[in-house]
Simulated scan of single mutants.
Amino acid sequence: MIRVLVADDEQLVRSGLRLILEAAPEITVVGEAADGAEALAETRRLRPDVVLLDVRMPGTDGLTAAPRIVADGAKVIMLTTFDRDEYVHRALRAGAVGFLLKDTPPRDLAAAVRTVAAGNAMLSPTVTRRLIESFAERGPDRREAARRRLGELTVRELEIVREVARGHANAGIARRLGMSEATVKAHVSRALAKLGAENRVQLAILVHDADLP
């Protein structure tokens, strides 16, 4: 069972999200929070697998709480009604593994929770491409810095990281490159460790910063 914590300052929104998620198989909402500080406290108390975290809340907002919640071992999906550049970029840099608008269809919301809980810490491929291409800040210095970091990888690790940046999950990468899924997973884990990245979204941002095809 996937354990989810819902954090939003509006009771009606929390109730709606709870209804949607608990109607989905293998998902249970273990708690709610009304701001970022409460979300962090409840994460430490309840140990959820996934936290749905509103971007804008009074007091401690979601963007401030996100890195602390990630550090405590939960995966974070940011929720907002505002499709704002700076929110998306800050959320990804904070270690969030998803960014969804609150008008996301219920089926897609449940699918996002399952995807993140399964360890495929990635936005949907189409959303990933749009957000990263729109919001990642690039320039000559940033590009060269990203290329230097990626230069620490082996040829095979870089090949796999580029596939990750295209939005492919491990199973798809394995089929495309003719290797086992376990081997792909091992390469991704080594790449994350070498690059000091928290998740696959940050790998994708780094590849985009490097301006690699």
Rank of each mutant, 00 (worst) to 15 (best):
A39P: 12
P48A: 00
A34P: 11
T28N: 09
T60V: 13
D35F: 03
E42A: 13
V50P: 01
L53I: 14
L40A: 14
G59C: 07
E42T: 04
A41S: 05
V55D: 02
G31S: 14
E32D: 07
L40Y: 15
R45F: 06
A33Y: 01
A71Y: 13
A24L: 07
D35R: 05
D49V: 10
R47G: 00
T43D: 01
V30T: 14
D72A: 15
R47Q: 11
L40Q: 13
R47E: 04
P58V: 12
M57K: 14
D49T: 12
V70A: 06
I27N: 00
P25E: 07
L52A: 06
V51N: 08
P67C: 03
I69Y: 12
P58F: 05
A66P: 09
V51D: 02
P67D: 02
P58Y: 03
D35V: 07
V51C: 13
G31Y: 10
D61M: 07
G59M: 07
T64W: 04
P48G: 03
G36D: 01
D61G: 11
A37I: 06
G36F: 00
P58M: 06
A66Q: 11
V29L: 09
P25L: 08
V50N: 01
G59F: 05
P67Q: 00
M57W: 14
A39S: 05
I69D: 10
D49E: 13
G62E: 02
V51A: 13
I27W: 00
A24F: 11
P58E: 05
G31F: 15
D49W: 13
P25Q: 05
D35I: 10
D61C: 07
E38I: 05
V50A: 00
T28G: 06
R68V: 10
A34F: 11
A66K: 10
V55N: 02
A66M: 11
L63N: 09
L40S: 13
G59Y: 03
E26H: 11
E32K: 06
A65D: 02
P58Q: 12
R56Q: 09
G59L: 05
L46T: 05
P67N: 02
V55P: 04
L53P: 15
P58N: 11
G31D: 10
E32A: 02
A37E: 15
G36H: 03
L40F: 15
G62S: 06
V55L: 01
R68M: 14
D72R: 15
R47S: 08
T60E: 10
R56C: 00
A66G: 11
E32P: 00
G73N: 06
A65L: 04
R56T: 08
R44S: 02
T43K: 06
R56P: 00
P58I: 12
V30D: 03
V55R: 05
E26A: 14
A66R: 10
D49Y: 12
A33V: 08
L40I: 13
G62F: 05
G59P: 08
A37T: 14
A71E: 15
L46Q: 09
D61E: 09
L40C: 09
T43F: 01
R68T: 06
R56Y: 01
A71S: 15
I27S: 00
E26R: 14
